[in-house]
Design a protein around this nucleic acid. Structure first.
Length: 570
DNA sequence: GCCGTTTTCGGCCCGACTGTTTTCAGTCG
């Protein structure tokens, strides 16, 4: 899969062209192309083979040629030549927040800066600060940018950002000057990780809100502080951006601040074609400057002939076309979930007893929950020997007589190195629901690991494959697994694929889940719960599903108990 | 460099904050 590599090259090219002061629209073309290739839910090489490169938005004749050149020769001559024209340090310096192409080039040209570390050294020695365009304040900002870069290891997990946003929002809500206070940005779109937290406030006294915001106790640094817009870094190193508008602009501002950027650009282009203009204050007629919408998002979309688009879909990946044609999916909601499919009890490495699990799930309004403790080979997680498993089957069957929720007995069985499961069929057939998962051999070559999972799906007792790619966000790459082949087999064997809702996993991810839906595969959203608070992670799994355009009918555990049992019985 | 209900040329989303060369370019979202 060369998608990521090509996207990176196109972004690199855009950076270099920016340094060289090229036409900004040409630069944007490269960035848009990079984004679209990264977002592609198909291998770009496969698209090339089908001669469909030109169908990718933002890819024209020229860029299609460059993609083909890269796939066939492993390099792009234009890019190789371009790299010679610019020194590496300039590109490195541009990764510092607040340092763009102009400043980076200036520093390298005038001060012969060799790297970020070199820049830091030169700055602390007072060697910068008297060149054209860079003075004391700018130096301070650069140093702060470097510290931030080193302190923040990339993006923040959605679940963590949600917690921080709750803190900030509850304090802003307490302000007399603040009316509505809501989260926006990629957090509202429920992306798996976020770069920063965006918060929108409506107020008739904006200044008072931004003043109070920059003085909140968790604020460590103020990056910018204007009358309607401010940015801070919190003590746990997350950037929070605040925007304040007057109440009549709430909808327009929320839409603008929710993004995504490319979604907004598409909306604004559409508006323009209709003689309208969209900004964060509203929708206006260009000729008369008369405001025709902006109080709420529904009105904004309606003003340009679109159905309301849920935030999770706003990625410019076909949602606007779908809204125009009235073909938006009826997205799955949390309330559609009728049971959890993946829960560990204190029989293996979980903390909860069967009764505690039943009580917690009943409270969530579920009709059923599947206990799926680890299997015997996963010793480190207290995997169950067959004898213990059979005892649990008996225990659960007995317990069900006095419960108002149906406990089902299953397992999260290990897929062994050769693709067999570590319980024999004679054991598996006694269980209500069998999950199979890879917990070893993460570094195996693609065909081996793909083969293991495919063989597991050929076992007629396997209902679902858990966390199919094994990735841990920000910690561990997915193993080399050919999901197209897995999907094909899942379709053939009627196997469900899990969307694991554990915030660090979210596996399958949104892009692959959308692909799975296109192929007609059933998905199951499950929390992989070990402790009482983790049942609530279901919301993150549902968010992945929503971002993947999934409807209720695409998700196994939206079935009520009766239908669920009917479906899983072999 | 891409794109087309202004379709093969002439456009390309829109605005806030900062620092500095004090009128605006640079950067960001």
């Amino acid at each position: 899969m060369k998608n990521a590599e090509i996207a990176e090259i196109f972004n690199d090219i855009a950076d270099i062209l920016e340094i060289e002061g090229e036409n900004r629209f040409r630069i944007r073309a490269y960035r848009i192309a990079a984004q679209n290739i990264e977002d592609l839910n198909e291998d770009v090489e496969a698209v090339l083979r089908k001669e469909k490169l030109l169908d990718i938005p933002g890819i024209g004749k020229d860029l299609a040629g460059k993609i083909e050149e890269y796939v066939k020769r492993g390099k792009i001559k234009f890019y190789e030549d371009l790299k010679k024209s610019v020194s590496r340090p300039v590109l490195e310096l541009m990764t510092i927040p607040g340092v763009g192409p102009k400043t980076a080039k200036l520093l390298c040209d005038r001060l012969k800066v060799k790297s970020i570390n070199d820049l830091k050294k030169k700055a602390s020695q007072g060697k910068i600060g008297n060149i054209f365009g860079v003075k004391e304040k700018k130096v301070e900002n650069i140093l702060r940018g470097i510290d931030f870069l080193k302190g923040s290891e990339g993006r923040t997990l959605l679940s963590h950002a949600v917690r921080v946003s709750f803190e900030v929002i509850s304090q802003l809500k307490a302000l007399a000057a603040a009316k509505k206070v809501v989260a926006a940005g990629s957090l509202r779109r429920m992306k798996e990780t976020v770069q920063d937290i965006d918060i929108l406030v409506t107020s008739n006294a904006p200044r008072r809100v931004t003043d109070a915001f920059t003085k909140l106790p968790e604020v460590k640094e103020v990056l910018a502080h204007g009358p309607t817009k401010s940015s801070v870094i919190t003590r746990d190193a997350i950037q929070v951006d605040l925007r304040v508008v007057e109440p009549p602009s709430f909808g327009a501002a929320l839409c603008y601040f929710t993004g995504s950027k490319s979604h907004n650009i598409s909306l604004r282009k559409m508006a323009k074609r209709r003689g309208l203009k969209i900004n964060e204050y509203g929708v206006f007629r260009v000729k008369t400057n008369k405001k025709i919408a902006g109080l709420d998002e529904e009105g904004l979309y309606k003003a340009i002939d679109l159905a309301y688009i849920p935030p999770e879909l706003r990625e410019d990946k076909g949602e606007i076309e779908a809204a125009l044609r009235g073909k938006l999916p009826a997205l799955i909601e949390s309330k559609d979930i009728k049971g959890d499919l993946h829960v560990h009890s204190d029989a293996s490495d979980g903390a909860l007893s069967f009764e505690e699990i039943a009580r917690a799930c009943l409270k969530l309004g579920y009709e059923y929950v599947v206990i799926t403790d680890h299997s015997k080979s996963l010793k480190i997680a207290g995997g169950l020997e067959q004898k213990a498993l059979f005892e649990n089957i008996k225990k659960i069957r007995k317990l069900n007589k006095k419960l108002k929720i149906r406990l089902l007995i299953g397992t999260e069985a290990d897929i062994l190195g050769d693709g067999r499961l570590d319980y024999p069929d004679s054991v598996l057939k006694e269980l209500d629901f069998v999950i199979a998962a890879v917990h070893s051999g993460f570094k195996q070559p693609k065909d081996v690991i793909t083969g293991r999972v495919i063989k597991a799906m050929d076992n007629k007792y396997v209902n679902m494959i858990a966390h199919p790619t094994g990735r841990l966000i920000g910690k561990r790459e997915a193993y080399e697994i050919d999901m197209e082949k897995v999907f094909k087999k899942a379709k053939e064997t009627n196997t469900t694929i899990e969307i694991n809702a554990y915030p660090e996993r979210l596996d399958l991810d949104d892009t692959s889940s959308r692909r799975a839906k296109e192929l007609g595969i059933m998905l199951g959203i499950a929390t992989d719960t070990h402790t009482i608070n983790q049942f609530h992670n279901m919301i993150f799994g549902v968010s992945v599903a929503r971002r993947a355009w999934l409807e209720k009918k695409n998700v196994l555990n939206t079935l009520d108990l009766e239908r669920f049992l009917k479906r899983i019985r072999k």
